[in-house]
Design a protein around this nucleic acid. Structure first.
Length: 417
DNA sequence: CGAGATTCATGTGAAGTATACCTTTAGGCTTAA
DNA sequence: AAGCCTAAAGGTATACTTCACATGAATCTCGTA
């Protein structure tokens, strides 16, 4: 036993595969950003006035995930902060906030709370009127003479959940400030995001816009190569590994983060295998592992009622392929694979009594189903069956082996309670 | 046969409720002069 | 008398419920050819 463990640790000790894994981690800041010179320069020149103590234009960046938006902004941010010491009497703060993080993104209140926390203040989790959270925020910013740049990553997520009133408030925050000024840098993955915005918000939020085009396979390959040089020992990557990573990622609209994750996980898998090289098959495994982990994380952090609903959907989806009675509930079966809201709700009710859980109303379940759609775990289409009524047609949006994993997780967490 | 009315089962919006948590205020207790 | 702690009062956000109305195509109705 001990012997066995020793062997495992030993193989990790020797660093057979990795030289410096941190280079592939998502928060790693490379020394230079290739293929993004233009954008970086633009950002820098737009934000540069801040060094003279003037408020720069609000800035809006958009492009698909993993096109280097966050990276570029942070790069500029770092170099700005480095020079910040030379500004007289102005205190410069640049805060980065990713709005997508689950616990933050839900409400306007929580985002503000998070911003305040970043600025060194504190607010209770709940209980305060949103209005007074605003004033606290203003107070905090205005407490000393400073220029604040707020970088809001993935705001599209937020606006989808809340209204764009939040952004409107933010953009006109400056009028409330006497000593300080705020500049907003918005980052969005959704290219159509701006179109759906209130025109007033749009014009003030995106005084300047920069578009980040996706990387193509060639560029991805270069990026991977540069990083791989620092990460892996020589000769560890077998022929074509980089190319394959690049190809996978290029298929996913040129997502560089994806490509790097892919490579890192593949390396870890190889390490775990005790393999001396990273092989092509590791990339494949890596690809499905990433996919799986992403969804599983989401499911895991979902509250109980959500899990029950999802569980119902999964069960029903599987029944569809293999028709048996649905616990004698409806007595009738759907002949097709399609699942409808009513079916889910019925089955959900059964599950609730089985697990002695509270039963939510159909109204609420309807909303929950919609949220799962937004998360991309299921696909939903509202259809009308004429006289047969109107309902959502629900389909699972994940492959069956992930479905099994989800089922496992939910079963576990349900049995615990 | 076809236009318009009907119908079903749920979508969707608004308003209301329960819960958890926050601040403020007032009263009681302790402490120090 | 001043200071501190505690409990009650008053307020809000959030998750959920209730109520009421909106949807939209299959189906029905009925007038017309």
């Amino acid at each position: 036993m001990t012997n066995n463990l020793d062997k495992i640790f030993e193989s990790f000790d020797k660093k057979l595969i990795f030289k410096d894994k941190s280079v592939l981690q998502t928060n790693y800041q490379p020394k230079e950003i290739i293929y993004r010179d233009e954008q970086v320069n633009q950002i820098a020149s737009i934000l540069a006035p801040i060094l003279r103590g003037e408020k720069p234009s609000n800035l809006f960046l958009y492009g698909k995930t993993g096109t280097g938006k966050t990276l570029s902004v942070q790069y500029v941010r770092d170099s700005l902060l480095k020079r910040a010491g030379k500004i007289n009497d102005f205190h410069l703060r640049i805060e980065y906030l990713n709005c997508k993080l689950k616990k933050i993104s839900d409400t306007e209140y929580r985002i503000l709370a998070e911003l305040i926390k970043k600025l060194g203040g504190s607010v209770p989790e709940t209980g305060l009127p949103t209005e007074s959270v605003y004033s606290r925020f203003i107070e905090l910013v205005d407490s000393e003479k400073q220029l604040v740049i707020l970088i809001l990553d993935e705001i599209d997520q937020t606006v989808k959940k809340i209204s764009d009133g939040f952004l409107y408030n933010l953009t006109r925050l400056n009028s409330e400030l006497s000593k300080s000024q705020i500049c907003i840098v918005g980052i969005s993955n959704d290219l159509t995001f701006l179109d759906n915005l209130d025109p007033r918000v749009r014009s003030s939020l995106s005084e300047e816009e920069i578009i980040f085009p996706p990387y193509n396979a060639l560029q991805l390959r270069e990026i991977l190569k540069t990083r791989a040089k620092e990460v892996f020992k020589d000769g560890i990557l077998s022929e074509g590994v980089i190319e394959k990573c690049a190809a996978y990622a290029a298929r996913e609209h040129g997502d560089a983060r994806r490509a790097l994750d892919l490579l890192r996980i593949a390396g870890e898998l190889a390490e775990r295998d005790g393999s001396k090289k990273v092989l092509l098959k590791h990339i494949d495994e890596s690809n499905s592992k990433i996919e799986r982990d992403k969804i599983l994380d989401v499911v895991k952090s979902e509250p109980k009622q959500f899990q029950l609903v999802l569980y119902s959907i999964i069960k029903l989806a599987q029944k569809g392929k293999n028709p048996q009675t649905i616990l004698g509930q409806t007595g009738e079966l759907n002949k097709s694979d399609a699942i409808f809201t009513g079916d889910v709700y019925n089955y959900y009710n059964v599950l609730c009594s089985k697990y002695k859980s509270d039963v939510l109303t159909q109204r609420r379940v309807s909303d929950i189903i919609q949220e799962f759609d937004m998360l991309g775990i299921i696909n939903v289409k509202v259809i009308s069956k004429g006289r047969g009524g109107r309902m959502r047609e629900i389909k699972l949006a994940v492959t069956s082996n992930i479905t099994e994993k989800i089922k496992e997780i939910i079963e576990n967490s349900l049995n615990y309670n």
